[in-house]
């Protein structure tokens, strides 16, 4: 039995046997029809973004809009890339996203483990207090946090961008649910082997809940990668800025926006995340289920 199957069995339940039961042909056709419908409805705006980035300046504003670029051009991509130091923005975004997500994942595993397995009086209140962080609108945190970061002397630094968002409530919630769904026998076995809490957490619980952790990490990466407002406020110089701010730079304050260039620029942002999603999507499916199904 491979590790992969082992996880699947223990975390999600018996693996589905897709063709175990013959399905009515009509249902399958309905399924394909629905799939085509979904791909069209959900994919259309994405298609529009995609072809927009290959259109010339004038064509974007053309009425009626063209479903395929009349004169497809690559020019928007170099135009966007050269309008701002995007290379630098990539580096900053990668640093900020990687460190921010790493911190969130580590803190979520630790907190979720404690909430699921370690004895503490009033543990449920701690859980609710942690969850309440999800209910505090980011708008009210901006000015106080700017002051705190300024006092620490962290304006325009990586730690200034990362630290205020390093704690995690959503992921703690998700992983707590996933950990609680783990089969008790395995944890018992660890106990018999004489493992302490820390070893149980790092060597038993974390590997077993790997799909949930990967999911959480991906959701965290997406959030950090797209974050705009806080990095804009806490940084000043172009060499500290991140990709979403770079895309904002492509827009003019007054006059027309060259949407072709902006859409090309937003592909800089979207493509890496999409590749990450496609690569990790099996983990996502298994992972979220693990957290959600067994409350």
């Amino acid at each position: 039995m491979t590790t992969r199957e082992f996880e699947y069995e223990t975390v999600v339940g018996p693996a589905p046997r897709a063709d175990a039961r013959p399905r009515p042909r009509a249902m399958r056709w309905l399924g394909y029809l629905a799939m085509i419908g979904v791909v069209i409805v959900i994919g259309l705006p994405i298609y529009w973004t995609l072809i927009g980035s290959f259109k010339l300046y004038n064509e974007i504003y053309r009425v009626p809009p063209t479903w395929f670029p009349l004169e497809p051009t690559w020019q928007n991509f170099p135009d966007a890339w050269n309008a701002a130091p995007f290379g630098r923005y990539y580096i900053n975004s990668i640093i900020v996203t990687a460190l921010g997500s790493l911190s969130e994942v580590a803190l979520a595993i630790m907190s979720a483990y404690a909430l699921a397995f370690v004895r503490f009086p009033g543990k449920n209140y701690v859980f609710i207090i942690l969850l309440s962080a999800l209910m505090i609108p980011v708008e009210i945190t901006i000015i106080p946090n700017y002051l705190t970061i300024a006092r620490l002397g962290w304006i325009n630094t990586y730690q200034g961008i990362i630290v205020p968002g390093a704690a995690i409530a959503y992921g703690t919630f998700l992983l707590r649910q996933a950990f609680k769904a783990l089969p008790y026998e395995v944890l018992e076995a660890a106990r018999v082997d004489g493992a302490g809490h820390l070893r149980t957490m790092t060597s038993v619980v974390a590997p077993m809940a790997q799909p949930a952790i990967v999911t959480m990490a991906l959701l965290s990466l997406v959030a950090k990668w797209n974050d705009f407002l806080w990095p804009l406020i806490v940084t000043n110089t172009a060499d500290m800025r991140t990709l979403p701010i770079g895309i904002f730079w492509l827009r003019d304050q007054e006059g027309l926006v060259n949407w072709g260039v902006v859409m090309a620029g937003s592909l800089f942002l979207i493509v890496p995340v999409m590749i990450g999603f496609i690569w990790a999507q099996r983990y996502i499916v298994d992972g979220i289920a693990a957290g959600a199904v067994k409350g």
Binding site: V38, I42, P45, I46, T49, P244, V273, M274, F277
Partner: peptide
């Protein structure tokens, strides 16, 4: 993947 992609768009 297509259904999920709007989730990652800004």
């Amino acid at each position: 993947a297509i259904v999920f992609s709007p989730v990652v768009m800004s």
